[in-house]
Structure formats: structure tokens, C-alpha cells
Simulated scan of single mutants.
Amino acid sequence: MSQCGKRTERMQSVIKRAIGALGLVVVASTTAAEAQPMGGEAHLSIESTTDLSSMHAGETGLLAIDIIVQEGWHTYWPGISDTGYGISFDIDTPDSVELKDPIWPSPERYLQRGGILDHTYEGTQTVLVPFVIRENTPDSVVVFTIKANYLVCDQVCLPGKGSASTSLHVVDDASEQVQTSRYDELRAQLEQRPQAFNAKDAAVRLQWISKAAAIMFRDATRIEFYPDNECSELESVIEDGQAEGNRLEVRFTESENKVLSGRLRVTTPEGVVHYDINEHAL
């Protein structure tokens, strides 16, 4: 069977399992869905702020986007899930602002009946977006406008859109930078951001096998893996996405051109460390 055929067959299998698992839920929730006058906006909102309210040109700041999910509901991280699509943001800024890559919090595994696995966010989660005010930017007000697109689910799944905005002042070097009330919190979160996975680290080992990859962390007691959209197709994230101990083996559906890409959550006796991994088989 061709690779395309295998992918189609697997997708059909996932869809059938999703219908089987979710169909019962939808039937049981028809009355609630019909009574729901709004979409996802009733169950998820976004808010935004920055770590500085006044800052100098040439300096780096943090834009924080809070995803606030109603209790009992969940939304999806921007990686691979069996159902649902990841929350996304469109951030509009003036040309004086250079946005860096967003720093997404790690999701949780959400396993449903029928063998459906999603990677989700619940409660309040904060996405950090580092930015730089370009050199020689004159005194001015900088406005960040954020638009969100998402799916939020409980017994039913509802699409939604949201928006938020925040601003700061660019001041001359003779003026002091001013911190917001969340400065310490956001800077602490930045310090705990995921590290780049380094296969050459002495405490780490990455081994490519015919149709698999094995990751070992010397002091780990548990390893979890959340694949992103660049990851090659996996045999079973349910079975391979978590492991007790210091070794995790992930199986691929194909043996050629394997890419292991996503987020790792590694538990050690000292605490939890997160890694972003994007490794290609040689």
C-alpha cells in the first residue's frame, strides 16, 4: 500500500473512532446544544497585557495572551490531536515592533473513550510572545491587537473567535521604563520556558531505530511527548506518548525521512523540565 493510502486509511480509522466516541456525547447533549444561544465565546475568552507599560527603543518586552477557559471546558493546543484544531492568534502591531516566536505552554493529554487522544488546555493558560521595539523608534504609543480563532469543547464543541488589545508607551532614554503588575510573573514564566532539545547533551540520548526513535534522559522518572504538526506520522500517540522511567520510544508509520518534532515534558526528582524537539533521522 502506498504511503498516501496508509495515511488515508489511518485518517478514516481515526474519524470512525471519533464519530463512535463523540456521537454518543452529541446525542446526549442535543437539548443543551439547542438551548445554547452563543458559540464558543461564552466559554472561552482572551486577555492581553505586557510586562512593561513604558519602555525604550531597542529593548525587548513580553506580550502575554491569557487563554481563559470556563471550568469543565477545554480548547486545543496548536499541535496534533485526534479531534479539534489548535487555537491560533493573529497579532497586529505597528512596524516599530518585531514579534518573536510565541512560547506556548505545554498541553495535557485528554484521552476519551474510543481511543481518541487530544492535547488540550484547561483553566487559564498564558502564551508569551517576546517582542523588540526597533531602534530609533520615536516617543509613541504602541498598540497590540490580538484576534483569536479556536474550538472549545465540553459535551459539545463550539467554534469561537475572540479579540483583545493592550498598549505601551515608547519613551526616550532619559525616562524610566515602567513595569506592569505582572512583570515578575511573566519574567518568571519566561525563565521556565521550554529548552531546546540538544541530542549532544551528556545527560540525553536520542537513538534512531528502523521505524522508531528512543529518547533517554539520565535522571528522568517520567517522559511525555506531544507531537506538533511537523512530526512524522506516528503509530500510536496513546501508547507511545508517555512512559514511566527514563526512556520513551516513539514508533513511526514509515521508516524513511523520520522527523521527531513537538514538546517533551520530563519529570525528574528535581522537578519538571520542558523541551522543544525537532530532530531529523540521518
Rank of each mutant, 00 (worst) to 15 (best):
E9Y: 09
V14E: 05
R17P: 01
A18V: 09
I19Q: 15
I19S: 14
G23M: 09
V26R: 14
A35G: 05
G39C: 04
G39K: 02
G40Q: 02
L44Y: 04
L44T: 07
E47K: 15
E47F: 13
D51S: 14
S53K: 14
H56G: 01
A57P: 02
G58M: 04
G61T: 06
L62I: 11
I67T: 05
T75W: 01
Y76V: 03
G79K: 00
F89Q: 00
T93Y: 11
T93M: 08
T93I: 15
D95T: 13
D95K: 12
V97P: 00
E98N: 09
K100Q: 13
P102L: 06
I103H: 03
E108I: 13
R109W: 08
Y110T: 13
R113L: 11
R113M: 13
G114Q: 05
G114P: 01
L117Q: 08
H119K: 07
E122T: 15
T124P: 01
T126I: 10
P130C: 06
V132K: 06
T137S: 05
S140E: 13
T145E: 05
K147Y: 12
N149D: 15
N149V: 09
C153F: 01
V156N: 07
C157L: 07
C157P: 01
K161Y: 10
A164Y: 05
D172K: 07
E176S: 13
Q179C: 08
Q179N: 14
Q179M: 12
T180W: 06
S181M: 11
S181W: 10
D184N: 14
Q192G: 00
D201M: 07
D201T: 06
V204I: 15
I209N: 10
S210P: 08
M216G: 07
N229Q: 13
I238A: 03
G241C: 02
E249M: 14
E249A: 12
V250H: 01
V250T: 06
G262K: 00
V266C: 10
V266H: 04
T267G: 03
T267Y: 15
P269G: 07
P269H: 05
P269K: 04
P269E: 07
N278P: 00
N278G: 00
N278S: 11
A281C: 11
L282A: 10
L282F: 06
